[in-house]
């Protein structure tokens, strides 16, 4: 047996799946050839090292970001069916029992009537109710110094055809998240506020709004908003502090082994600023040092190297998105 043939048998020999005659030949070769014998020892050691490679946990929020994308994908409109590709013979031979057809029609009629009769935007959840039209909601009575008019914001603006988010402070301890669009087609949305989910549509001239209670002092409330229009959709996350801080403060802190979401949560809490973000917030941030920095500088320090940018859309309100 030559050296090349011997080395080709290392795996089978190690896994004990070698036939007995070749095993004898290989063992004889290893006894005679010092080089191959050393090579086999190295080989065995390398395999033992491979077996010791540790498991690594996925980043925090990985599953949530997968499911957010799933939600956006789910809402995409299925591919348009061309009339000439339909098997018409099959369509006309589908047998629908008369009773099922009657029940279906009754449900459809009841649904249409309910749309006419029921008041819009019911949630039935105490404390989290949908507000009247945005124009009727009082704005920024909490803190006069931050009362610069909030600007609406949507990722990749596209002339406001997606979901436009605007954040206001309605009264002490209550935020108002306004949802509107310039699109004539409905923009579907799903909102998750601390595990309670809402879904609905907005269309041009028919905005919605949701009141969100501020979190308790020192913590952050995270609101997830998934929306889609046709093939386009986004998943946005809103970080709300217990109270928006009017005066800019400077802070020093460091962040290690975190994700973009962790960073935004921390900056929201430290500075008392609200942040509306989209993109892969599960992306890891290995290390960031914030030294005597304003919120603008802190956001730049922490996000610039991981491909995100931030900009102020109003006093104490920031938008964060991936650099394109």
């Amino acid at each position: 047996m030559n050296c090349k043939a011997a080395r080709n048998l290392f795996s089978a020999y190690l896994d004990n799946s070698i036939d007995s005659s070749r095993k004898v030949d290989l063992e004889k070769h290893l006894a005679d050839c010092e080089q191959c014998d050393r090579a086999y020892s190295r080989f065995r050691y390398a395999i033992s090292m491979l077996e010791r490679l540790p498991d690594v946990n996925p980043p925090a929020g990985f599953r949530a970001s997968v499911m957010a994308r799933v939600e956006v994908e789910r809402r995409k409109v299925p591919a348009r069916v061309r009339w000439w590709s339909i098997d018409w013979q099959k369509v006309f031979t589908i047998r629908v029992p008369a009773r099922a057809l009657a029940v279906g029609l009754a449900v459809l009629i009841a649904f249409v009537i309910s749309l006419q009769v029921l008041p819009p935007l019911r949630t039935g959840i105490a404390g989290l109710f949908l507000a009247q039209k945005p124009s009727e909601a009082p704005i920024s009575t909490l803190d006069q110094e931050s009362a610069r008019a909030p600007m609406p914001w949507t990722p990749e603006n596209r002339n406001g055809q997606g979901l436009i988010l605007t954040l206001d402070v309605v009264q002490s301890g209550v935020y108002c998240l306004k949802l509107h669009t310039k699109s004539l087609k409905p923009v579907a949305f799903d909102i998750d506020i601390s595990g309670t989910k809402y879904s609905g549509f907005v269309v041009a001239d028919k905005p919605s709004a949701i009141k969100v209670p501020a979190p308790r002092s020192g913590s952050v409330r995270v609101v997830h908003v998934a929306w889609s229009i046709g093939e386009w959709g986004r998943y946005q996350t809103v970080f709300l502090p217990s109270k928006l801080r009017s005066r800019a403060v400077v802070k020093t802190f460091s962040i290690e082994k975190a994700t973009v979401a962790d960073v935004l949560r921390r900056i929201c809490r430290e500075y008392g600023v609200a942040i509306i973000a989209w993109g892969n917030l599960g992306k890891p941030v290995a290390y960031a040092q914030v030294y005597q920095a304003t919120p603008d500088d802190a956001l730049y320090e922490c996000l610039n190297r991981v491909g995100f940018k931030a900009y102020g859309v109003a006093a104490s309100i920031y938008a964060v998105e991936p650099v394109r």
Binding site: L118, P120, L121, T123, K197, Y198, F201
Partner: peptide
């Protein structure tokens, strides 16, 4: 006609 219908889907 499209109204702003929102139904809580939590649960």
């Amino acid at each position: 006609m499209l109204e702003n219908s929102v139904g809580a889907r939590a649960g």
